[in-house]
Each structure stands twice: as structure tokens, then as C-alpha cells.
């Protein structure tokens, strides 16, 4: 298969960036999107050009490191899929493919397609944890949790923190990410002691980082590779309101 790539190239945050056009030729349809970029990069290196910098790690859809906006879709057009799990067979032969980094004030660009997502880490550090005395592991079922609640908590815990929700949101809002963490911890007994402080400090960190506000477009849940539903945002809203009254 052959493709024309329009790739955002930018040396560093202080340089102006621009789109550059590359040809990706003779690509097997079983190639993943990132492997396709690897092939293009090898040709760039042979020519003495700088390879395209992009984020990746596990390449099996579980770490949340990869991600670019492909033809206007975060992680590409295929639903419930990270960029590393997207294959070239889902594109048309000869297609023009626009490749852009996540765009958000809270995700400053590092170089080319790589952005700095440490604002997500800051939000987690503000309360996305439980404070317990660690020791030898407790027995598996020492704390009983209703099945439907543990399932719902697990569904929220599937969030890999890739940032596609922010990237796809017309307002660059991080509400889906924060709501996933609030739900995951708020549904299980271990998360209760810090529940109301957690929501306050995580929301404060989110606002501080410069994310936008949710206006209920729903683009986040459509882009999320783990298909986290935006219902969780309603839960986040509810928890923040309750936290104001609780103490």
C-alpha cells in the first residue's frame, strides 16, 4: 500500500512548526501505524534527515504512551483502539494521512508529535491514590465489594491516561480522565476515607493545569481507546458538589 503523509514537524517549542509531506511506499497492509512510521523514519535516516519523533512504548494498547491525531481523529478513526493497535489495512490505498500532535495548552509540545503530559501526573499526585499502610499483601477477598461495583470500578480503571480525551475535546477538557480516576477510587471501600478531599484537590489541579471546561459534547468517550463512558463525568460533578457540603 502507498500513502502520502502530512506530518507536523517542529524541532522544539520555540521554533515554528509546519507540516511536511512524506511518501510511505510499499507498506504491507498488516503493518501497524507506528511500524509504518518506523519504516518512513528509516528512510529519513538513510537520507540524512531527522526522523519523526513520536511517543510509544508497549505497542500493545495498554501503556497509554502513544497517540497522535490522525486525519482529525485522536488515535485514528477506529473506535476503541490506541494508535499502536491501528493497522494500515484500515486505510485506503493512496490515502493522504494528516498526522498531528495532541493540541492543548496543558500538553505543551516537546518536539514533532511528542507532547508533555506531566499535567496528568500532577493531577494524580493531587489525589489519585489511597493512603494505606503497606505490608504483606492482604487476602484476596478480605474486603467484600459488590460485584457490580467492582466491575464498574474496573471499567473506570481501564483508563491508560493517554490524553485522547483532551486531544479530541473541542474544549481540551480533561474531565473524562479525572472522572475515571474519581470513579475508580470512589467506588471501592479503600477509596472512601479520602473521597471528598480527593475530588477537591484533583479538580483544583486540573483547573490549575489550564484544561478547558466540559460542555458535554461527548467527543472524549468517542475517542477513548478504552471506551470510558462520559457518564463518569456526571459522577465527578456529583462528587464535587457533595464534597462542598460534606465538610
Amino acid at each position: 500500500m502507498n500513502f502520502t503523509l502530512k506530518v507536523w514537524r517542529q524541532k522544539n517549542p520555540n521554533n515554528a512548526g509546519r507540516f511536511r509531506t512524506y511518501a510511505a511506499t510499499d507498506i504491507s497492509s498488516d503493518t501497524s501505524f507506528l511500524e509504518m512510521l518506523d519504516i518512513v523514519n528509516e528512510q529519513l535516516i538513510e537520507r540524512g534527515d531527522d526522523p519523526i519523533a513520536f511517543d510509544h512504548d508497549c505497542r500493545e494498547g495498554i501503556c497509554g504512551t502513544c497517540g497522535c491525531v490522525i486525519n482529525g481523529f485522536a488515535h485514528g478513526h477506529q473506535e476503541g483502539t490506541t494508535l499502536c493497535q491501528l493497522h494500515m489495512r484500515s486505510f485506503d490505498d493512496g490515502q493522504v494521512i494528516w498526522i498531528e500532535p495532541w493540541r492543548a495548552r496543558a500538553f505543551p509540545l516537546i518536539t514533532d508529535l511528542m507532547v508533555d503530559r506531566s499535567s496528568f501526573d500532577t493531577i494524580i499526585q493531587a489525589g489519585g491514590f489511597i493512603s494505606i499502610r503497606t505490608g504483606s499483601p492482604p487476602d484476596g477477598n478480605a474486603i467484600p465489594i459488590p460485584k457490580d461495583e467492582s466491575d464498574a470500578a474496573f471499567e473506570a480503571a481501564a483508563c491508560i491516561g493517554c490524553g485522547a480525551c483532551v486531544a479530541s475535546c473541542p474544549n481540551a477538557s480533561a474531565m473524562l480522565f479525572v472522572s475515571a480516576k474519581i470513579t475508580q477510587l470512589g467506588l471501592v471501600p479503600q477509596g472512601q476515607p479520602e473521597r471528598w478531599d480527593r475530588v477537591k484537590s484533583m479538580v483544583a489541579a486540573m483547573e490549575e493545569a489550564g484544561f478547558g471546561a466540559c460542555t458535554n459534547h461527548g467527543e472524549c468517550e468517542a475517542a477513548c481507546p478504552k471506551e470510558i463512558p462520559m457518564d463518569l463525568i456526571a459522577r465527578l460533578n456529583r462528587d464535587l458538589v457533595c464534597s462542598m457540603v460534606k465538610k
Partner: peptide, 11 residues
């Protein structure tokens, strides 16, 4: 919301 995405997407 306007301030949260200073560089817009091409597509």
C-alpha cells in the same frame, strides 16, 4: 475553553 487550545488542528 478558548485559552485551552492555543494551536488548533489542521484537520
Amino acid at each position: 475553553n478558548r485559552a485551552s487550545r492555543p494551536v488548533r488542528y489542521q484537520v
